[in-house]
Design a protein around this nucleic acid. Structure first.
Length: 619
DNA sequence: CCCCAATGCTCACGATGAAA
DNA sequence: TTTCATCGTGAGCATTGGGG
């Protein structure tokens, strides 16, 4: 049973050092770092209302930055989510980060709840009482279970808070909360140590299980990969299969396309198996870097798979390609009636061979009605966090044929999201299994453990989920999952080589370690899964993924009914006509006055005008 | 020839930051 | 506060191609 250290504080730069100093109060198996501020209620509420499989509500307004109430009202009207508007609760163990709100283990939640209950400075908080009440109503079973583990004094305290005199206006509570009967659970806790934080019983902790991710319920059952993964687990025991057991680079979509899925799954029993870099390196981890500065180490970064990997696609100039396609591929006879057609990124050539007859050639084969090129492009852009609009701009600039952006989104929604979900679920299961075997777990429930790894994770999020981009809720979750997959697959990399850097703060030269190159292995199984899903798909992509979303603006935003476009066009035309007439000099008197004013302008007006021009030029 | 699905294309909407 | 540029997304229609 691992010892759990729970970091109950929000962002504070000293927490990393505080893990061992006097700020940490140890109570049995649980170590709690006292919070310094009382502004984490919203995050806690978010973390505990949603971990049990409930979907994130549309009006989610919990955020990292603790927005003011005026901001919250703005968030409630949003239909798309951005970074910071939903809690990405990250629990960390210095080298592991994963989403907590869907996969928090029970013992971790127990520790967090105990820490919450013991927050003395929240006793007078109105919001805290409201939160406790809502938490109790929404998660009665968890609430009662945790209550019974509390010290009697704390038990009474929490009971009064959540049940006692509710100092809330009825308008602040949901109807269900108003109807909830004031229930003070019977104290059945055993004798516990004094103090506000109570350790949870070890016999209960042994039954700790991971909560289900809400998205697992929606996951399509992947027969081939899941079953083969389970078989691999049975055969190999509890030890996870190293990622080197599958060969993502050798199994190309073409091999899957060959139809021998069963055979390919035998070769790669668990395509979603992953392993952190530090564990992959094994005994070689001691050889962190070469002593020669500037000389890049090839032992750690260059792998056999990298050497044998050859590109699958090439960019060919139009004229060079057309010269090749003028003749029949088999008999080398010039074709007749050659027609070149481009469909998105694919070039199709139809013609007539005097010897062979009808001739057809395509630059990309198909996987069950989908062009492989489109599938690969859509998958790769999503898994690398690439902006589709930027890619299309690049294609337009250099004349590169690319599929329409709608095609990108449709393929991503139809197949890539499901593949990412599967890979994410597999990785989370392995992570939790690994956590259970550890002696000590450090949890930072709301992602406030200010470790360098967390900063790295936020950096990953910025790649896959820029704050400027707003996406719908399910898309937000999938993008975050990609960031987590990437982070977990690359965290714990060793130092490849050292470079010399000058520090302005210390005014000294120092050595700076450059980490090993990031691995791409986690993307390949997802890519293969996309092709597999496309091959087994029987429904049109629109039916699979597209969900009708109510686009009517809420009354809080649009307080008037929407006029027709023709009405707005009439108003616009009338407004323009009025503007034109007002600026038109119609009488000679007006022309004379205008000429006079232009000849003798006031000094002030001239200066203002020139300043404006100068400002525009500067910009 | 008809049907179905993928794809292309257009329009519209929601949302943001930055600038006016 | 409004406007503009930009991005992501949804819906609808037209086109194209394959299969029955």
């Amino acid at each position: 049973m691992p010892k759990i250290c729970y970091f109950a504080s929000r962002r504070w730069s000293g927490w990393q050092r505080c893990s061992t100093d006097s700020r940490a109060t140890s109570e049995g198996d649980v170590t709690v770092l006292k919070r310094t501020k009382t502004c984490s209620e919203q995050q806690w509420k978010a973390a505990f209302l949603w971990p049990s499989g409930e979907d994130i509500p549309d009006d989610a307004h919990f955020c990292e930055q603790h927005f003011a109430p005026s901001d919250l009202s703005r968030f409630q009207t949003r239909t798309t989510l951005r970074r910071g508007t939903v809690p990405l609760d990250v629990s960390e163990q210095r080298d592991i980060s994963f989403v907590v709100y869907c996969d928090l283990v029970v013992e971790a939640k127990a520790a967090a709840l105990a820490a919450l209950f013991g927050s003395e400075h929240l006793s007078d908080s109105k919001i805290w009482r409201k939160m406790l009440r809502r938490l109790r109503i929404s998660n009665e079973s968890i609430f009662s279970c945790e209550m019974n583990r509390l010290h009697e004094e704390t038990f009474t305290f929490v009971s009064e808070l959540s049940d006692g005199p509710v100092e809330l206006e009825p308008a602040e509570l949901e109807p269900a909360e108003l109807q909830a009967s004031p229930l003070i659970p019977k104290y059945t806790g055993r004798t516990l140590k004094t103090g506000s934080i109570s350790p949870f019983p070890s016999e209960l902790a042994e039954e700790a299980t991971a909560l289900f991710c809400p998205h697992e319920l929606e996951l399509p059952f992947v027969q081939g990969n899941i079953s083969s993964a389970e078989d691999a687990q049975k055969e190999g025991g509890s030890s996870p299969v190293p990622s080197t057991s599958f060969s993502p680079t050798t199994q190309t979509p073409s091999s899957i396309r060959g139809g021998d899925i069963a055979a390919s799954s035998e070769i790669t029993p668990s395509p979603f198996k992953w392993k952190r870099r530090s564990q992959l390196s094994g005994d070689d981890s001691d050889k962190e870097f070469k002593s020669d500065e500037g000389s890049r180490s090839t032992s750690s970064t260059s792998t056999p798979e990298k050497e044998t990997k050859s590109p699958e696609y090439f960019i060919v100039e139009r004229a060079s390609l057309l010269r090749l396609l003028d003749m029949c591929i088999t008999c080398k006879v010039p074709l007749k009636e050659v027609v070149f057609r481009t469909v998105g990124s694919v070039l199709n050539v139809d013609g007539w061979c005097p010897k062979c007859g009808p001739h057809a050639w395509s630059s990309s084969p198909k996987t069950n009605k989908f062009y492989d090129l489109n599938l690969d492009l859509s998958t790769s852009t999503f898994l690398t966090g690439m902006n589709i609009a930027s890619l299309l701009r690049m294609g337009k600039c250099m004349g590169l044929a690319l599929p329409h952006r709608t095609t990108f989104y449709r393929i991503q929604e139809s197949f890539v999201y499901d593949a990412v979900d599967t890979a994410f679920a597999t990785q989370q299961e392995e992570l939790i299994e690994e956590l259970k075997e550890r002696e000590e777990i450090h949890l930072a429930g709301d992602g406030r453990y200010s470790a360098p790894e967390l900063e790295a994770f936020h950096s990953e999020l910025n790649v896959y989920l820029p704050k400027r981009i707003g996406v719908k809720k399910p898309h937000f979750v999938v993008k975050a999952k990609v960031a987590i997959l990437d982070h977990n697959a690359n965290v714990g990399r060793g130092v490849d080589y050292m470079i010399i850097r000058y520090s302005r703060s210390t005014k000294r030269y120092r050595l700076l370690g450059v980490k090993e190159e990031k691995t791409d292995s986690w993307r390949q199984p997802i890519r293969e899964e996309v092709f597999r899903l496309a091959e087994t798909s029987n429904e049109p992509s629109k039916v699979i993924a597209r969900k009708r979303i109510d686009r009517t603006l809420p009354r809080t935003v649009a307080k008037v009914s929407r006029p027709s476009k023709s009405v707005l066009l009439q108003e616009h035309a009338m407004q323009m006509r009025r503007k034109r007439e007002s600026t038109l000099p119609v009488t000679p008197e007006k022309i004379r006055l205008a000429t006079k004013s232009s000849l003798t302008p006031s000094r002030g007006r001239k200066e203002v005008s020139s300043r404006k021009v100068a400002k525009r030029r500067r910009i």
